[in-house]
């Protein structure tokens, strides 16, 4: 087959919703886009362990501590599936870590915000995981097979996370005055960063058109953002919390909530590294990696010694 016919074959598969698998031919840019997106997603899971991990040792009850630990552990598991999915595209996990540590690869900017009170564990589960689900459910049908299959598992767990976050918020909102204040304060701080999670407006999103064509993406950033706002505003009402947007209003004609202007300056600043915790998050990841070098070396050296001994034994037995 010529490159041209490879391309036609690929396009035909995409158009007829046949998944692309690791051994299939794919355009270089499709591969690159996927590596960028999947690794960014994997990094987000791993960096995302930090803001919540911040409260594991301070959770207010044993049950909450256990649930939070299990949740953060799930995020690690998601990172693992996603790194594995990216590896099928011809990049190693170590290369991806290197891109993260050198700042070449990004992760979701939301994790550059600090977790200041226990209510932030509720807000992250409810809003951040809620927004992630909106983004991720369509990815279960994304055109690249390993990514789509990883996302099926991820989404199942994320919807549990979203419920546990909402439940934390509900308990606080139904609690004492100070607990309500804590819940409202968390919503105030996490609302705008959460709706920024869907990325820049469609007009300013350089990758959207191509990703839609390749069926990597199924909905645009703005479509998903609107859907998230419509759902979440109702949930906030249900537990008596106020969404911190004075322009928020139901628009009968559109059948959606209208909302106020997003501070894209803040968004781009956090992306560029000027968020409250960019430095801490990256330093924590680098420290874990560097402090772990001797451990990984030891594991490797031991595995080699063991292999050599087994080979020796086999030679002697032969």
């Amino acid at each position: 087959m010529t490159v041209h016919s490879f391309q036609e074959h690929f396009d035909a598969k995409i158009d007829s919703e046949v998944m692309i698998e690791p051994r299939d031919w794919m355009p270089d840019d499709y591969r690159k886009t996927l590596i960028r997106q999947i690794s960014q997603h994997a990094h987000s899971e791993i960096v995302g362990m930090l803001p919540e991990g911040n409260w594991i040792t301070r959770a207010p009850s044993l049950r909450r501590k256990a649930v939070l630990l299990a949740k953060v552990q799930d995020e690690g598991g998601h990172g693992l599936y996603l790194y594995s999915a990216a590896e099928t595209l011809g990049i190693t996990r170590d290369e991806m870590y290197d891109q993260l540590h050198t700042g070449k690869a990004k992760y979701s900017s939301i994790f550059n915000y600090p977790t200041l009170t226990w209510a932030d564990m509720g807000a992250i589960g409810w809003l951040v995981d809620g927004a992630a689900i909106m983004n991720q459910v369509p990815l279960c049908r994304t055109s690249y097979g390993p990514y789509a299959r990883a996302m099926v598992r991820v989404c199942k767990e994320e919807s549990f996370h979203q419920r546990q976050g909402f439940e934390i918020m509900m308990v606080l909102a139904n609690g004492t005055e100070v607990q309500k204040k804590m819940a409202q304060d968390a919503l105030n701080r996490w609302w705008w960063p959460s709706i920024m999670m869907f990325g820049p407006s469609d007009a300013d999103s350089p990758h959207t058109a191509q990703s839609m064509r390749w069926r990597i993406k199924r909905f645009t950033n703005d479509e998903l953002r609107q859907k998230f706002i419509d759902v979440t505003v109702e949930q906030a009402k249900l537990i008596g919390l106020t969404v911190p947007d004075p322009d928020l209003k139901w628009n009968e004609e559109r059948g959606h909530y209208d909302f106020g202007p997003i501070n894209w300056d803040e968004f781009w600043n956090v992306v560029k590294g000027n968020g409250p915790c960019n430095k801490e998050r990256l330093e924590a990841r680098k420290k874990a990696w560097e402090d772990g070098a001797w451990v990984r070396d030891a594991a490797m050296a031991h595995a080699q010694k063991r292999k050599a001994r087994q080979e020796n034994k086999a030679v002697k037995a032969a």
Binding site: G53, K65, Q73, G76, A299
Partner: peptide, 15 residues
């Protein structure tokens, strides 16, 4: 042990 969560030397071992 829970203090390690998110800071382990190898992702599988962190989990």
């Amino acid at each position: 042990i829970s203090e390690w969560c998110g800071h382990g030397p190898i992702l599988e071992q962190d989990i």
